[in-house]
């Protein structure tokens, strides 16, 4: 069963057609990771799927429904999307930001009901932020801040969560912390996670399903073992990669790589 499917999706960014004629399926209940070189349409695809960017053509189906037939509020109850490195307004507390996740359920003046409060508390617990509820978001570390945004997405109570490079600007430990949180959410609550990641080793470690994109086209999709191959990485990133089975996780990993010259590819910006 697919959570998201795109059909002939075309997306333009700044007038340039970044993605054209893309058919992509995202399996339900799995962690899907999109990889690809800079400027090759990963984020654009994610934004189009998350109805943040309006497609030039084609369609996006959310659980089988054409996303254009749903109101943006309805979509927000089914799908949460976190852009890359979002900024919180100055002075906002963790609890207040997480409470914004209830926005698509609120009407009128939107006083939080006891159900809303329970969900917010649960989201804080799931992201281990309860002790920071009254702290200002600005005063947290990068990893904690990323967890706050994830908690906000959780408070949206959606089965589907899209994240654009959730590990950007985080050090090694924080990266793992965020990805393990998403892993727990997926395994414990069978939420469908779709994310764009730069680090292909982290991608292979946490993904159930990987999609390699170059120039807005899918080069290869499937299990990490199928996508993390020297052949796919060569085509996708123009690198000569050495892939091994990582001893701790049993997942494929790239231990070393070289550039294949001449690159001369317009895709790298």
């Amino acid at each position: 069963m697919n959570s998201i499917a795109t059909e002939n999706l075309a997306v333009a960014y700044d007038g340039n057609l970044v993605v054209d004629d893309l058919d992509m399926q995202i399996p339900q209940g799995k962690i899907t990771v999109v990889i690809g070189p800079n400027g090759c349409g990963k984020s654009t695809v994610l934004k189009a799927v998350g109805r943040i960017l309006k497609p030039r053509g084609g369609a996006v189906y959310l659980n089988g429904d054409d996303i254009r037939r749903l109101t943006t509020r309805e979509v927000a109850r089914k799908m949460a999307i976190l852009p890359q490195a979002p900024q919180a307004p100055a002075g906002l507390t963790v609890g207040e930001l997480v409470a914004y996740g209830r926005f698509p359920y609120q009407r009128g003046f939107g006083k939080l009901k006891s159900d809303d409060k329970k969900i917010i508390q649960w989201a804080l617990e799931a992201t281990r932020l309860t002790e920071f509820e009254t702290a200002e978001v600005d005063n947290l570390s990068g990893g904690q801040r990323q967890r706050v945004w994830i908690a906000m997405a959780l408070a949206q109570q959606t089965d589907l969560i899209l994240l654009d490079e959730p590990t950007t600007y985080l050090d090694l430990a924080y990266q793992l912390e965020v990805l393990e949180l998403l892993y727990r959410l997926n395994r414990g609550q069978s939420r469908t996670i779709v994310m764009v990641l730069h680090d292909i080793n982290l991608a292979a470690r946490f993904a159930d399903y990987m999609i390699a994109i170059r120039r807005g086209d899918i080069i290869k999709h499937g299990a990490p073992e199928e996508v993390m191959t020297a052949g796919v990485l060569k085509e996708c990133f123009h690198i000569d990669a050495e892939i091994v089975k990582e001893p701790r996780t049993g997942r494929p990993a790239c231990v070393s790589y070289d550039l294949i010259r001449p690159t001369g590819d317009a895709c790298d910006s």
Binding site: T72, A76, P83, Q87, Q106, G108
Partner: peptide
């Protein structure tokens, strides 16, 4: 005053606001 809640959300990045279901 009625739009206070919407203003809260618009005060964030546009992409975040759209993701939360604000037009």
């Amino acid at each position: 005053l009625y739009k206070a809640r919407v203003l809260d959300v618009l005060n964030m990045d546009d992409d975040v606001a759209r993701g939360l279901g604000a037009s």
